[in-house]
Design a protein around this nucleic acid. Structure first.
Lengths: 346, 346
DNA sequence: CGCTTCCATGGAAGCGCTTCCAATTGGCAG
DNA sequence: CTGCCAATTGGAAGCGCTTCCATGGAAGCG
């Protein structure tokens, strides 16, 4: 059964070169004649040789292991589309690059969450971390990680972290703005806003863009009501009624993500409202749920899977130092308002 | 900045013992005096020592790495709740056991999918694999993996694999049976069945249980129509109309999972049917979507996250050989029919 | 009381790789 | 023709851990 796998020495012997030369070829090192390089490659093929990542990591000091850190509470059922899609994209990004990603669920808000993230470096020897919100805005954490010599890419940072560290994301402020413009165009003037969790700064940017569009029309704080949810469907169902009963009498409910919008939609159904005739509702992300609910949700599309993939690519570039400037890079991808059937003229 | 981490030799020196003794303590080996053991542990604490997994893997020949293999096409957006939840459970299971899981998306149906799964062993040196459907029914693949000396746990196997290898799952046949009983009790006698993908044997068991319940009432092949979907919302929307137009005139649509049921529900809405008055619809899994759609879906609950966690626990038990019999083990968890609002008397 | 057996510990070897540095070669300017 | 440099290759030394085997002493036995 389990026959011993060939080692680098087997390859060296078969191709008639020294072990170091094989190592050079395998790692794309310079100063190897083409003839030797191809001879080695042929031996690799012939033996079906694969490098042993443990040995490489031990000798070379790098594990080629990344960690994808997300914060949601694992006991709460609906692990969100946002995180799943990010992860899937990261997985896809790793495939081509020869890296592996360790998915790590570290509930934040717990006192030891910083410690748990930092332990990924010491116990797993990860070379780099991908931090999703709200960790992507935690400057103290990021600096602590960087101080350990571990690289970081932030996903959807929304505050000061955005300019100080490598990151990927969309322009959330512009997304909120664009959505608000659409609603204003439809004649809406009084709004309810279901914001996201405190500390998720990118979600707050959506609100900020929304406010900017309002201000352009001379509308201000008196023209909308805001509450905070936790991005879950459930919080949408719980919070929508309060907003609907608000003295303002909002004609549109703007939600910081699709799950909460779906919850709001469900709550609206429950009180017999006809959507979008009686009330407009919008989400953010363009998650699958946006197309599943009835009527399908108007939302802002963001390419979450691509974000995950780009995060890996950026992190690996930073790790290998190829094709990358020393100063922080932010990859901003395109968003787009997707008008479906939960919005209408008032 | 990056100061060198303490090694096992630092611990040995500080506690005044040899390196091997520290190793013994760390691995719970026998033949160490309690006094020595605690002295070593104190040194470990003092230095904040963590074993280097690369070194341990290289020297010991085991990586403490598991792979969670799932099959869905990464280009298809809605990576299903089933797989996400399984993964989350597996992650949680690893936490306590000191193992890590590498999540691997290997689209099946491609000619090289066996090769890609086997490469997890050679390339990543995984000690064990968790195979989700349909890989959990692929006897040839499982035997090939086992032949490499890598352990396997199957999730929701439905065919011969169920008795031959370690696995976790619910009794899908009984789930289908229970659901059918409920529908029969409500007076339904003509059914449409949206089955799952070919080769997902556990999903077929649901149909089998359903048929058994029908047979008990003297109903047979002439009393239901069946089509196959691919477990996505979209396939539910596409397939439901055909079933509704079937000459049989089904009064209930039974779907192999919740996403397809949600799709069927949406299709029913689109043609103006009132659910559950005009038509009953059922799903399977009790995914979050079941509670999100309107009206909420009657379905069969299965504890998917716990399944993922149990899979890890079983795999690690098999790997370490503790607390486990040599013959294959199947952990069967409880399912439960959840009657919500898409089912009513006909 | 001499013998085996068991327990607790340590020494040495080596897992499979990379990194550092030395050695050899060929080319080319002086 | 000599010297020097760059290109190419290899030898040796580990990375931090576990496994194998040897050692010494305490305990058990006829």
């Amino acid at each position: 059964m389990t026959t011993r796998r060939p080692t680098i020495d087997d390859v060296a012997r078969l191709s008639g070169v020294a072990r170091v030369t094989v190592s050079r070829v395998l790692n794309g090192g310079p100063n190897v004649r083409d003839e030797v390089r191809s001879r080695v490659m042929r031996a690799v093929e012939a033996l079906d040789y694969k490098v042993n990542p443990q040995a490489r990591g031990l000798a070379g000091g790098s594990s080629r292991l990344l960690a994808f850190v997300f914060a949601s509470d694992p006991e709460n059922d609906p692990n969100s589309y946002y995180e799943s899609a990010l992860e899937l994209g990261a997985l896809r990004g790793c495939l081509a690059l020869g890296y592996q990603v360790l998915v790590q669920n570290v509930p934040n808000q717990t006192p030891d969450c910083h410690k748990r993230v930092l332990e990924l470096i010491t116990t797993q020897r990860c070379d780099g971390l991908i931090l999703s919100p709200p960790y992507s805005d935690d400057v103290a954490l990021i600096e602590a990680v960087l101080a350990q010599g571990c690289k970081v890419v932030t996903v959807s940072p929304g505050g000061p972290a955005k300019n100080r560290f490598d990151g990927v994301g969309v322009d959330d402020e512009a997304g909120g703005y664009d959505l608000a413009r659409e609603l204003l165009r439809l004649g809406h003037r009084r709004f309810g806003f279901i914001a996201g969790l405190e500390g998720h700064l990118s979600a707050d940017l959506r609100l900020k863009g929304f406010q900017r569009a309002l201000a352009e029309q001379g509308l201000g704080e008196g023209d909308y009501a805001m509450v905070r949810g936790d991005f879950t469907f459930r919080s949408g169902t719980h919070l929508a009624p309060g907003l609907l009963d608000h003295p303002l009498g909002p004609t549109a409910l703007v939600c910081a993500n699709d799950d909460m919008a779906a919850g709001a939609l469900s709550a609206a159904h429950a009180r017999g409202l006809s959507i979008p005739k009686d009330l407009s509702i919008t989400g953010f992300d363009d998650a699958p749920v946006a197309a599943i609910v009835w009527p399908p949700l108007t939302t802002v599309h963001q390419p979450v899977k691509v974000l995950g993939q780009r995060a890996v690519e950026l992190l690996v570039a930073r790790l290998t130092g190829v094709d990358i400037a020393p100063e922080p890079v932010f990859h901003q991808l395109e968003h787009a308002v997707v008008s479906r059937q939960t919005t209408a003229a008032t």
